[in-house]
Design a protein around this nucleic acid. Structure first.
Length: 795
RNA sequence: GCGCGCGUAGCUCAGCGGUAGAGCAUCACCUUGACAUGGUGGGGGUCACAGGUUCGAUCCCUGUCGCGCGCACCA
């Protein structure tokens, strides 16, 4: 609904954000505090835990000697970050560690400084790791910070906002970048013989998800959301089933995060975003208010004077803070609008798993808090579309495929230019260019929107990422074309004709009734697949009906009625009406997955199918009750298809052109089947290019033929009409015989197993017996045929 | 360490306690009057491996190997 487009920075939305912030603050759920945060020294902002990427990288473990203050020796501490040692305020050992416990309470002389720091005992220390001694830097490490709090250690901040060293370090190191400082400190320690050894070590390095810079735990004032009270009802909502994840396995992921959730740092030192509604007076007191006037009034009241000057907090809010309100603030919240009443909660949220924490969980928490209900009933989690190697698409990897380029196509040079411009890491340019040229030597052809959409639907398996493959979209582009041609054909045969909606009588043939029945089943299945969020199965069902039933069979089977001189007007009307009605309903059924082509075709087809409307988009979705199952027609079509298939297979396997007309001899599986074949002989003759169809009484009386067995029917075509060389037919028969013998062997093995016969359900055993009987009679027929063809050869 | 998922045809993927499937690719034939972006037919798979349950396992269970992801992490 484009009339409801919303923008998170609009004044209306901003008001909602401020209201939200103030309310949480007033309830004590937002607080400001000086704490360690993940600091991005490049972007100069704090980040939430979720924005931190921990990547495994190769580094070193430096073993440093820290001399005891009394000169009786030293302790060895291991660190991955030697430059932080200038901020150490203790060395910790495990309180039960026999090697060190007598040292607890003594002092260490911190190298390169003139400071003495205590040796403390703390359970956090793992005696088995390294030397069992840990340097403690409370201002620059999250674990050390907690230990520092437990032991009342001072916090010495040795880094500034750029992660360069501050004035709180010896003069020599001041102003140095952290990595420069590392080199110098290690060298200085080595010079003093305080470096025991350096070991290679892989460690997880925290990096910012935007800048990719190595983050620094840094002590600053930030705003936080006290999250546990909000998380609890949000967990319950999923436990109760008021919200359901599809597929269900994401529920666990959600719980795991929600149960271990930490307070959310929401302030950012960026210039873009909603500014935090907090003001400070000249003494640093904070006033949170909906407006500056309110804040001023608060300040005046609290300070008991009027000449107060306030300064607004310059920080802005984490973008996800405002996004968390999306489901209700877009509907006018905090006003109780009619929209809010009507549309909240929504039925389903469709999104990627990568923002379950960032967004989904927070919408649930805030929705429950402020809108009084869950924001949505179901969360459908899609897979991620990855590149051909299974890698996540990203600008820096240069492996992004823009959907627009698949729709419109793009030539190689333009694609290379697109992938290598505006790069944050220009040194990757030549590699990206090379890969792109290799993968898309011809660029990308234009596939169109419908093919792309249908492809993604067909790949949308539950809970699985999609590895992008041009081959699939190629096939579905062809499908669009197939449909287009089918529609063209239908129009050709119906425009300007009596399509059976008028007074003239209408007679439906077996193919007409059959395709209607099949459409009914297809509608039922597609509806079910959509209800189950199985877009892949819906797409497959739609594809198979259109191609394998409507186009491959029905359009062919309807040709005699439409084109022959012998069919009645009523039969012609029946065929035309069926062509139209089935296509029209099918277009509506397909429309959600292929919107443009279906609309275009529907505009022409619908009026002929006696249906009016401005657009297919506003038409009802097909009901299976519109096309009831016709079991009689479905049974009747089987022998007809078998006969046609038999001829096709003989032709295909003997490499015989369709243009060579052949007579047919059929030994049907039953009297009733023969009756159907005979009654539809003109139809079969037309579709399979067969001259005449005769029932076989005595197979020995036939001329030498090629034979195909289908569903118990033996379909014979005289060899003289097909080929000169009977060996080809003998080879064919031999192959079929070998296959059948294999199946017989399998059945025999099964039925020979007493346990199978005794324990398997009777229906399964019976089925197996029936199969083996069928196979045996097949063998008999094949061998008979082999004899006859061999005679021809000997003659 | 905890959690989730994946290993099925050359490639991308469905499937499932009882006859192994699709698209693309491949091979042969077919210039049929909707469509060669098409038609018909064919070839191709010890369903990762090993145990277990079962009359029967690609499917269920356990373990192993390989791959991916999320969370938490030892300085």
């Amino acid at each position: 609904d484009w009339s409801r487009e919303a923008f998170t920075m609009s004044p209306q939305y901003s008001r909602a954000v401020i209201e939200h912030f103030v309310k949480l603050y007033e309830e004590g759920l937002i607080y400001r505090g000086k704490r360690l945060v993940n600091w991005d020294p490049v972007l100069h902002t704090a980040l939430s835990d979720l924005e931190v990427l921990a990547e495994e990288e190769k580094g070193s473990l430096w073993h440093l000697r820290y001399p005891l203050a009394d000169g009786t020796g030293h302790l060895v501490v291991a660190t991955t970050r030697p430059e932080t040692m200038l901020g150490d305020t203790a060395v910790a050992v495990h309180p039960q560690d026999e090697r060190y416990k007598h040292l607890i309470g003594r002092k260490i002389h911190l190298p390169l400084t003139d400071r003495l720091i205590p040796i403390i005992g703390d359970e956090y220390v793992d005696p088995a790791f390294g030397s069992g001694c840990v340097k403690i830097t409370p201002a620059h490490d999250f674990n050390d910070y907690e230990i520092g709090k437990r032991h009342n250690l001072p916090l010495i901040n040795v880094f500034d906002a750029n992660a360069a060293l501050t004035h709180d370090v010896p003069e020599k190191y001041r102003g140095l970048d952290r990595f420069e400082a590392r080199k110098l400190i290690v060298a200085d320690l080595q010079a003093r013989e305080l470096l025991e050894k350096i070991e290679p070590h892989t460690l997880k390095v925290p990096r910012g998800d935007r800048s990719h810079a190595v983050l620094e735990p840094w002590l600053t004032d930030q705003w936080y959301v006290r999250i546990a009270p909000l998380a609890e009802p949000a967990i319950k909502a999923v436990e109760d089933g008021r919200i359901r994840f599809v597929p269900d396995n994401w529920t666990k992921t959600y719980y795991q995060w929600m149960h271990n959730i930490q307070d959310w740092c929401i302030s950012r030192q960026l210039w873009w975003g909603h500014q935090i509604p907090a003001w400070y007076d000249d003494q640093g007191n904070v006033y949170v208010a909906r407006s500056e006037e309110d804040a001023l009034a608060q300040a005046q009241g609290s300070l008991n004077r009027t000449d107060v000057t306030l300064t607004r907090d310059e920080d802005v809010l984490d973008t996800w803070f405002s996004s968390a309100l999306w489901p209700f603030s877009t509907l006018g919240w905090p006003q109780q609008t009619p929209e809010l009443k009507t549309f909240y909660p929504t039925s389903v949220l469709v999104t990627g798993f990568d923002i379950i924490f960032f967004w989904v969980a927070r919408m649930i928490m805030m929705g429950l808090k402020f809108a009084g209900d869950v924001p949505f009933r179901e969360v459908y989690i899609t897979g991620l579309i990855r590149d051909e190697n299974g890698d996540k698409m990203s600008k820096s990897k240069g492996n992004i495929i823009d959907p627009l380029d698949l729709i419109d196509g793009i030539d190689l040079e333009a694609l290379v230019a697109k992938r290598t411009s505006g790069m944050m890491q220009p040194h990757l340019k030549s590699k990206i260019e090379k890969n792109t040229r290799k993968q898309f030597p011809e660029g990308i052809p234009s596939y169109g929107t419908d093919a792309l959409r249908f492809t993604f639907a067909s790949l949308a398996t539950m809970g699985r990422d999609i590895r992008f493959d041009l081959g699939r979209i190629d096939g579905y582009r062809n499908f669009c074309n197939k449909l287009w041609n089918a529609a063209r054909y239908v129009l050709m045969n119906t425009e300007g004709q009596d399509t059976g909606f008028g007074p003239g009588s209408v007679e439906y043939s077996i193919p007409d009734r059959w395709i209607r029945s099949r459409l009914g089943t297809t509608i039922e299945q597609v509806r079910k697949h959509f209800a189950d969020y199985r877009f892949d199965l819906a797409a497959q069902t739609l594809y198979e009906f259109a191609w394998y039933e409507y186009c491959d069979w029905y359009l062919e089977l309807a040709k005699p009625s439409l084109q022959s001189d012998t069919s009645s007007d009523a039969q012609k009307r029946g065929a035309r009406r069926t062509l139209l009605e089935v296509l029209e309903a099918y277009l509506r059924l397909l429309h959600p997955l292929m919107p443009f082509v279906t609309e275009e075709m529907w505009q022409s087809v619908a009026p002929l199918a006696n249906r009016t409307g401005a657009t297919i988009m506003l038409q009802p979705y097909p009901q299976d009750s519109d096309f009831p199952i016709d079991q009689a027609a479905e049974s009747a079509i089987a022998p007809i298809k078998a006969a046609i298939l038999g001829v096709r297979q003989i032709r295909g396997q003997l490499d015989v052109a369709r243009s060579r007309q052949v007579p047919l001899f059929v030994k049907a599986a039953s009297q009733e089947d023969w009756r159907l074949i005979e009654a539809n002989a003109p139809l079969i003759g037309f579709v399979a290019n067969v001259s005449a169809i005769t029932a076989v009484e005595d197979e020995n009386a036939l001329p030498p033929t090629a034979m195909q067995l289908i569903d118990g029917h033996a379909i014979h075509a005289p060899l003289a009409n097909l080929i000169d060389d009977p060996d080809a037919e003998l080879a064919r028969l031999g192959k079929r015989k070998a296959k059948t013998l294999q199946e017989i062997a399998k059945c025999e093995a099964k039925l020979g197993n007493q346990n199978f016969v005794a324990n398997a359900p009777p229906a399964v055993v019976d089925q197996e017996r029936a199969r083996i009987a069928d196979f045996r009679s097949e063998i008999a027929q094949i061998e008979e045929q082999e004899r006859r063809v061999a005679q021809l050869k000997n003659a």
